[in-house]
Write a protein that binds this DNA or RNA. Structure first.
Lengths: 123, 123
DNA sequence: TCTATTGTTTACCTCAAGGTGAAGTGTTGT
DNA sequence: ACAACACTTCACCTTGAGGTAAACAATAGA
């Protein structure tokens, strides 16, 4: 229940990745990649009540993936590239570290293999 | 309550991003970037019961981010690069689309601005 | 063989996520 | 003025995520 934790809860990436974990919200992001849109415009493809859909918008907004602004009675939503970029570069870093380590492993195994082959030749 | 949905629930990315939304699990991924480790080795830095930690491992495993294997009494965990790569490229795609559209917008505004300046010159 | 180590299972708790319907608020267009 | 529109708020429900404690394997090492 997170009574005591080594790191402060709710780091920025928590929210971004949580937001990305829902297909509705990923679809919204995809749509907003083509340009801004109103809430009802965004909601149109989904079989879901408006209040439910608004929650998704709020989730996207509160983690900084989407910025919204009220113009008259319509709320306009636009993508905010920075949050997505941060998530992307975290992933890139992890993959790079993993790849580097995997390469070292392969090199090590190849060296071992050479050793074995050497032994075989020596037989 | 997801009684009816346009897309099938539980797409692969759902699980991966959900897994990434927890700081404990991100830390585990970071650790596994340096190479494989046993569960208790991984759990050591965390103030958390072992069963609780095992759940995190299972989450990482069931979405394909981590592969585990039982050797004797110890369960060895290793990173599986593919799942992370897929998440990464989804994000890269979204950012690219957003950037392309943002660039088009800037171009459009610049053209408008030139028009205005032209009008100003004509005054 | 006995004991410590390393998980694993079980039962349980709490809270937040994602959804609903119904009623309310503020704008816009006629 | 007033009807239609585009949210917004409210009260509520169900499920799953993340955590606990305690008891139960199964393997490794002395």
């Amino acid at each position: 229940m997170m009574t005591s934790r080594t790191w402060p809860t709710a780091e920025p990436l928590d929210g971004v990745f949580l937001a990305l974990s829902d297909p509705t919200r990923r679809a919204v992001i995809g749509r907003l990649g083509q340009g801004g849109a109103s809430v009802s415009e965004l909601a149109q493809p989904f079989e879901m009540s408006l209040p439910a859909f608004m929650k998704h918008v709020r989730v996207l907004e509160s983690c900084g993936v989407v910025r919204t602004e009220k113009r008259g009675r319509v709320r306009v939503c636009v993508l905010e590239g920075q949050a997505i970029s941060q998530a992307e570069s975290w992933l890139a870093q992890q993959r790079a570290a993993w790849q580097a380590q995997a390469d070292r492993l392969v090199t090590y195994v190849e060296d071992e293999q050479e050793g074995v082959e050497g032994d075989r030749r020596r037989q």
